[in-house]
């Protein structure tokens, strides 16, 4: 199963190291292969170093593509993480 969804980064600091680490932790809970598309970049969501090269600041829209049996759950978990601002206050 392949699920695609666009989401916005809404926390103040954007996808900085700690936020990216949270994202990787969530992605790693799922068996699905998860990629992030942004512009011409195509990044493995389970690679913190890859995510750092996105330099996604607040307001950036990124597209997740999950491929695997638990793709739907993975996308839902990621959606929740981004909406919760990666657990950050602002």
């Amino acid at each position: 199963m392949k699920v695609t969804e666009k989401m916005a980064i809404i926390n103040k600091l954007g996808l900085h190291l700690r936020a990216a680490a949270e994202l990787v932790k969530v992605a790693n809970k799922f068996k699905s292969h998860i990629m992030i598309h942004h512009g011409i970049q195509n990044i493995n969501a389970k690679s913190l170093m890859g995510i750092m090269t996105l330099a996604a600041a607040k307001g950036t829209e990124i597209e997740f593509v999950a491929d695997g049996e638990d793709a739907k759950d993975a996308i839902a978990a990621l959606r929740q993480l981004l909406a919760n601002k990666f657990g950050e206050k602002e």
Binding site: L17, R18, A20, A21, V24, K25, N28, N44, K46, S47, L48, M49, G50
Partner: peptide, 15 residues
Amino acid sequence: AAIFQAHQVVLDDPL
């Protein structure tokens, strides 16, 4: 201390 957790995740990288 959270920064060190992030450092652990760096080591989880496929690299």
